[in-house]
């Protein structure tokens, strides 16, 4: 797939209902009715969307080991912009053109101000990561603006999942392989074998007889 230079569309739309943007066994990403969105375009194709408003991101960052489960669910209420790229679900039927009232609800006086704000956010994302996009068609990428002015990234492809934030990296593949890195330690689990590195100890465990 040829890398593409992307830009934002210039007609803001509003979500007419709550939408599940991604759902698999490990995580759910939701956008809520009333969110404003702009498409991310390259040539004539829609590569994704940027959302302003509310959303919720849930990740079961739990690793099952032969000695018991480690980790806990991560639930984040999103009130900063977030971006969806790659294999995007079709949301066109759930959008309506945004009105001046909708835009003022987002703290902008008019459409131009909203577009300027959106482009500033998107430029920041582009500078942090890439201005040309080259995603495999079956992968889905989310970027959530965090409180450190950086991006928490979630990448999902078939049964593989990667989440990266300032204080957590969680990788899951095919239920049987997981990596969890956080201030509490490092956990690597692969098909019944587990290595846990805690603050004061290390545990290597295998369910092989």
């Amino acid at each position: 797939m040829t890398p593409k230079r992307a830009k934002l569309g210039n007609e803001p739309s509003k979500l007419t209902k709550d939408l599940v943007l991604l759902q698999n066994e490990k995580c759910i990403v939701k956008a809520f009715a009333g969110d404003l969105t702009l498409p991310i375009l390259a040539d004539d194709a829609t590569l994704g969307y940027i959302f302003f408003g509310k959303g919720r991101f849930t990740l079961d960052a739990i690793v099952e080991t032969p000695e018991g489960a480690v980790g806990k669910p991560l639930v984040k209420d999103l009130d900063t912009p977030f971006i969806m790229l790659g294999k995007v679900c079709n949301i066109a039927n759930d959008l309506t053109p945004a009105t001046v009232h909708d835009i003022s609800n987002m703290g902008c006086r008019n459409s131009e101000e909203f577009l300027a704000k959106a482009n500033e956010v998107f430029s920041r994302f582009s500078l942090d990561y890439h201005t040309r996009f080259n995603f495999e068609e079956d992968s889905q990428v989310f970027a959530f603006a965090n409180e450190h002015d950086k991006w928490d990234m979630l990448i999902s492809k078939e049964d593989k999942l990667v989440y990266m934030s300032k204080d957590k990296v969680y990788i899951s593949k095919d239920k049987a392989e997981s990596v969890d890195i956080s201030p509490a330690g490092v956990l690597v689990a692969e098909r019944g074998k587990t290595i846990v590195i805690g603050k004061n100890n290390i545990l290597i465990d295998s369910d092989d007889e």
């Binding site: 990561y129 201005t131 040309r132 995603f135 992968s139 990448i155």
Partner: peptide, 10 residues
């Protein structure tokens, strides 16, 4: 450093 392939980066 404009062009970064996200898969390569990952």
């Amino acid at each position: 450093g404009i062009y970064i392939d996200v898969n390569e980066k990952l």
